[in-house]
Computed example of a mutant assay.
Amino acid sequence: MKSPLLSLPGAVSAEGVDEGVAAHYGDLFREQRALADGTGFVDLSHRGVITVTGDDRLAWLHLLLTQHVSDLPVGQATEALILSAHGHIEHALYLVDDGTAVWAHVEPGSEDALVAYLESMKFFYRVEVAVRTAEFAVVQLPAGSIAEVPESTVVRETPYGRDLFLPRGDLETFAAGYGPAAGILAYEALRVEAHRPRLGFETDHRTIPHELGWIGSAVHLQKGCYRGQETVARVQNLGKPPRRLVFLHLDGSEVHLPPHGTPLYLADEGPDGRKLGFVTTSVRHHELGPIALALVKRNVPPDAPLVADATAAAQETVVEP
């Protein structure tokens, strides 16, 4: 979905999975500082939107998701995963129930596959699942924003900001009253700073929740059976995840950021050594400089200096080894 806000002054379109919204509006660091100060908003209208309605919606979702949602209070935000039978992450949902429907936003382009899976699991439950991306767009007001939300808007409030599900036709009117707009690069920089994983960036085909620290925030350990739960329980009780998420401070003298998938090696071995992991997201932060998230093998020493291509990287622990 191409956002009408790409017509705003200075807008430069994002690339890849975030194509359709602005990467920035001409001043990346100013946009980051505005969000950090609780002003402005982020256009996330390229993200998929789904709703689940019906009397059984929470009880039914509780059976399918990693999160405990059977008695989710109205207006309380949560996040949840859908796992494969082997416990690998397939979908990440960011949820809120408004009293009559569960609203969720998901990664761009993933909503059709998600709804197809949900439809296949309806059985006798009184639920209706719908893709609403063409009708509703997600925007985020940053944490600390005191802006008043349009009346009747569905809001998902978290420590990182308020996600609003707006009628898509209201985007331009909203932007006129809630500026300045910040691009997806500013949003991503604050996400990396907060060590928050993102599906398709910090995950690959074999990622399990423990590797990213999604236990607790997206995976509830005291709920009934769901697909992939055996892997979650086994790792929790008997083993350790094979990889772990780390935060990297990158050498600020390098002009280019290491892209997603860049291999990581010990600094004193370089590419001649053993590959220890890979960069998942790298960004330029308005205060911290170049930073990144990465997945590394569990037994990599937390204080070991690393290198991504020619870029030196110092670790901070996100998931304990």
Rank of each mutant, 00 (worst) to 15 (best):
G183K: 07
A194Q: 10
D37K: 10
D37V: 03
T158S: 12
S70Y: 01
V21W: 02
A34H: 13
L118I: 09
L81Q: 01
S120G: 04
Y25N: 03
R298N: 08
A292Y: 00
I208E: 12
S253H: 15
H286L: 04
F165I: 10
L141K: 12
L93R: 02
Q32K: 08
H260S: 14
G40M: 06
Q76S: 12
E79V: 01
V319M: 03
T133A: 07
E15F: 08
K275R: 14
V138C: 14
A23Q: 06
Q67L: 07
E211D: 01
T153H: 06
E148K: 14
L164V: 06
A312S: 11
G289F: 02
S3Q: 05
F165K: 06
S282F: 01
D204A: 09
R198H: 03
V307C: 05
L118K: 09
I89F: 10
T311D: 03
G10E: 01
Q76K: 12
A186M: 09
E188M: 13
Q32P: 14
D37P: 02
Y187Q: 13
H210G: 09
L72E: 09
P4Y: 06
A182I: 13
H91E: 12
P73K: 11
D303M: 12
V131Y: 04
K297H: 14
E320M: 09
G261Q: 04
L171V: 00
S84H: 15
H105I: 11
V219P: 03
D55P: 10
E135A: 12
R156C: 05
A85Q: 07
G161Q: 07
I146M: 14
T66A: 08
V129T: 09
P242T: 08
A233Y: 02
S217G: 08
Q140G: 04
F123C: 11
A23L: 13
F136T: 10
